[in-house]
Design a protein around this nucleic acid. Structure first.
Lengths: 253, 253
DNA sequence: AAACCCATTTGATACAAGTCATTTTGAGCA
DNA sequence: TGCTCAAAATGACTTGTATCAAATGGGTTT
């Protein structure tokens, strides 16, 4: 493990329940992600009620599914540790990676419109997640307007972030797309109290390419070019952002 | 006006309130779109309560805004007649058309996450819309679980349709993108009881190109090619689908 | 430590779509 | 009837990214 590793790997041998993010018994109240996750809009006693419906399972191994396409839809999920990717498969079997989710982020909301999932979610590395049964969430929302509102907002945010991706795919070059993704990961790491400068990408080059509408080769070439231009230091999945400003200018072109 | 005109132009001189889709005083109960729109999931008396909060304005002229970027968010909207396009503008001023909305369809949901709109909506032709104040809708949802559920579903559908567009932009060629859009418009017209074979595109070639991540020239060339190959008859915005099957095969490639 | 696997990188070439320039078409209007 | 203007179509040329092919390198198994 390098110095840029995920926090989830640092406290593995701790005996304190609260300190271990893979621990299944931690409550929403004590979860270190609660400032990023569903509880953010809630009062203390409301968090307690939310906590009661949240189900926490054992950690997921890399490449194992949270849910698969055509599974019955029953819940939405929050990442507690590790990272998740979601993807859809169209009629012709073409896979589209639709999102990368880091601790504190919610996924699985596309299933709400249907009785069954139209996408799949898999762990990109060892991960633990919270499952929030949707029918219970609906009931709770009715007695807790702030939760209903927050959940509306979450879905709306998903819509606007999808639309940003649409613009990225529709209007930007390969370099601009990669720069934008790197800055997004960087910012989300920073939000979680980690470094936005040095971090480990949880996903493969193939995943990045699929997500950004590029081939693996193009993604690899862009990384090499960025390194050559002194914007990044790249060592496989370890990234060090050297020239944030230049990267931002690229992303904003 | 040709034979392929919108129904909104056919009944203009009718004296019956119910028959004129531009008429502002029509209720949800009587609206011919209610089987496609919000009331679909509701009981009769629930539709009445929804009807009470819906505000109907005078018809909008072509190119006039329903809302503009940075306008305060206060409502979501349903198209009653005509057609609406939505677009966003990023920091660099790049415009991305994010959707085309036909009668019975709901738009404006991306504003929920923010206090102000992050996109704009304009009429592509004379249109009338229903405004549904969001705070009233939230209140109503709390006492009407079927409405809450339906609205969750609507937002989730918006997410999945955005993700389909992401796949289209990320994985498909110019011809495949155009074919897919044409079939989408066709299917939505058919759903509204109009012809899925002969119809008028409400949007310009530039709008189509912007939406699909293509230049105007490419869109124009694809239309010409489709015509030459006997898939379509194109006369400016009037479209006749000649070979639906071939078009579907293209879209599903 | 050899053998293998798989992700990643790098290079050479092809092609789909973009860019730039020009023409055609049609609608609105004097 | 002809003028103006914008949308759309067409043609010639360029280019960014895909494709195909091969090399590199790290990790795991035997």
């Amino acid at each position: 493990m390098t110095a840029i590793s995920e926090p989830s790997d640092l406290s593995r041998n701790s005996t304190m329940t609260v300190a271990c993010p893979h621990n299944a018994s931690i409550s929403c109240t004590d979860c270190r992600m609660n400032s990023l996750c569903l509880p953010i809009a809630l009062e203390y006693d409301e968090v307690e009620r939310l906590n009661e419906i949240v189900q926490r399972g054992r950690p997921l191994q890399k490449d194992s599914h949270v849910y698969d396409i055509a599974d019955e839809f029953s819940a939405v999920y929050a990442v507690r540790s590790g990272s998740i990717k979601t993807y859809s498969v169209n009629e012709q079997g073409v896979i589209q990676v639709t999102g990368f989710y880091l601790p504190g982020e919610i996924f699985g909301m596309d299933g709400i419109a249907h009785t069954h999932h139209v996408s799949a979610a898999v762990a990109m590395e060892t991960a633990s997640i919270c499952e929030i049964p949707f029918s219970r969430l609906e009931e709770l929302s009715i007695t807790m307007p702030s939760l209903q509102r927050h959940f509306f907002k979450l879905m709306s945010k998903e819509i606007t972030s999808d639309q940003q991706l649409i613009t990225l795919l529709s209007k930007n070059s390969a370099e601009e797309r990669v720069a934008t993704l790197l800055l997004s990961i960087s910012a989300r790491n920073a939000k979680r109290g980690l470094s936005g400068i040095r971090f480990r990408l949880p996903m493969s080059r193939a995943d990045i390419g699929n997500y950004l509408g590029l081939t693996v080769e193009t993604v690899s070439r862009v990384f090499s070019r960025f390194q050559k231009q002194g914007l990044l230091n790249v060592d496989k999945k370890e990234i060090e952002v050297v020239d944030t400003l230049a990267l931002q200018e690229l992303a904003n072109t």
